[in-house]
Design a protein around this nucleic acid. Structure first.
Length: 477
DNA sequence: ATGTCC
């Protein structure tokens, strides 16, 4: 499959599926292209290009790697009127995403001991690791109708955050159309994990702004060199996972009934305007809003933890929300004068300056696109440039794996992990359960980010460097 | 990503 990819423009390789006439575009730097071994991920893009109503091109981001159905780092747009929606093309972790908090703290003001104490204070409020449910009993049985229909504002009204937070969340933390009634029972029963991080690549990170690329935009965003930031990366936890699992089955059965089978179960789909398609979108919006609420509640507890440890009022510490953006979601958007359902799976929306879907406070800059790196490595804040229309206004979502979790666990030792993350305080009780998250199991974030910068799609605003990270543990085996 | 195999 890799052999089919021909260079067409800077850092962009392409081929056309002869059967569907849909193009497949993959963004890789020369170095990433040379090392690229994810043949199956390209095959997955090829499969996606065969779905009914897919709009050319199907896109692979520089962090692409094999996933369930559509690869992670994949963008697939379908015609909103005549196309399909695929649960697998959104992914297991519906509205996995990141939010970034700015502060009025200078990196020189907090040493390793303080960072460790803050992470502990967060950890006592926000459980991490696979299977963990909310530390606060009331959050284990949330009003899922309110979460689905009101979203983050529901918790802001209840005292978990500030009113102005809402302006700085994609869709104000409430994707329209959410309906808890469309969430299968098994999934509803797993909605007891608000204010938890989860495992895998999820984290809460404290760091400093290491480099400013675009002074003017950085100032507009309130980002200054050596300013302490907090980065929160998590999603909809077990709820989204169960919705994806259940609807993938429902959609597979739907296509079997209608004789329009997807090439693989992971791309099982239903017409957007079928009952199954509409129900999935209602359930997806519910899980997406749950994920926005999850990050909002975590933000509240992060603010509490900073106040407790640094013994300063919240107003003095800042901890303002810069932005919260999803990277696993399907959204109805207009591109090229046409309404589409853009599936982004491990891809981040990055609307350029002037785009009407930006929140008002970012209308003339373009909203911040927040790109988390792997544990202990840098992250970036970017904005989309006008050329970003080539990817339906999408950029990568992170560094992207180069090694399976299984292989990373056999490849690295605890000592190597510490070496790869030196100078970063790691709050986790069992490092052996984090070996699959070792930085060397991921691509180089600089290389990945600059692949799209050099392609002319984005401009970097700042580079962020971690000082401490709170990680959830997976399995040791 | 995930009560990482109901």
């Amino acid at each position: 499959m890799k052999a089919k990819l021909k260079p067409v423009s800077t850092n962009c390789y392409a081929f056309t599926n002869p059967e569907s006439k849909v193009e497949i575009h993959v963004y890789l730097s020369p170095g990433l292209f040379q090392d690229f071994g994810e043949d199956e991920a390209i095959n997955q893009l090829y499969n996606a290009s065969l779905l009914p109503g897919v709009v050319s091109p199907v896109i692979g981001m520089p962090d692409i790697h094999t996933g369930f159905g559509l690869p992670i780092g994949g963008v697939m747009a379908t015609d909103y009127e005549t196309g399909v929606v695929s649960a697998g093309a959104v992914g297991m972790d519906i509205n996995c995403g990141v939010r970034l908090l700015t502060t009025r703290i200078d990196a020189g003001e907090i040493n390793k001991e303080k960072i460790s104490k803050i992470l502990d204070a967060i950890s006592s409020r926000v459980p991490s690791g696979v299977g963990k449910s909310s530390a606060v009993k009331a959050l284990r049985k949330p009003d899922l109708d309110a979460v689905a229909q009101i979203g983050v504002e529901y918790f802001v009204r209840a005292g978990f955050g500030r009113k102005e937070d809402l302006e700085r969340i994609e869709d104000r933390g409430c994707i329209p159309g959410g309906d808890a009634a469309a969430v299968p029972k098994a999934a509803r029963e797993r909605a007891d994990q608000l204010a938890t991080i989860g495992g895998g690549n999820h984290f809460i990170e404290i760091g400093r702004v290491a480099k400013v690329f675009d002074q003017e935009t950085a100032e507009r965003f309130g980002l200054f060199k050596d300013m302490v930031y907090v980065l929160i990366h998590t999603g909809s936890r077990g709820l989204g996972h169960q919705i994806c699992t259940d609807y993938s089955r429902i959609m597979w059965e739907h296509s079997e009934r209608n004789g329009s089978k997807a090439p693989v179960k992971g791309l099982a789909c239903a017409p957007v305007f079928s009952e199954d398609g509409q129900n999935y979108l209602k359930a997806m919006a519910c899980a997406a809003n749950y994920a926005f609420c999850n990050r909002q509640l975590i933000t509240h507890f992060v603010r509490e933890a900073f106040v407790e440890v640094l013994k300063k009022p919240e107003s003095e510490l800042g901890l303002d929300l810069l932005y919260d953006v999803a990277h696993n979601i399907a959204k109805k958007e207009k591109h090229g004068g046409r309404w589409l359902l853009v599936h982004r799976k491990g891809a981040t929306r990055a609307l350029p300056a002037g785009h009407g879907d930006n929140p008002p406070c970012y209308r003339d800059t373009g909203h911040p696109a927040i790109i988390p790196g792997s544990m202990g490595t840098a992250s970036y804040v970017l904005v989309g440039l006008p050329e970003i229309h080539r990817t339906f206004c999408s950029v990568n979502h992170g560094a992207g794996r180069v090694m399976s979790r299984k292989r990373a666990k056999s490849e690295f030792t605890r000592e190597q992990l510490l070496e790869q993350t030196k100078n970063v305080v790691i709050a986790a009780s069992n490092l052996k359960a984090l070996l699959d998250e070792a930085p060397l199991a991921y691509k180089d974030i600089d290389e990945v980010v600059f692949t799209l910068v050099d392609a002319g799609l984005t401009k970097p605003v700042v580079k962020l460097k971690p000082m401490g990270v709170l990680k959830g543990e997976g399995d040791e085996s």
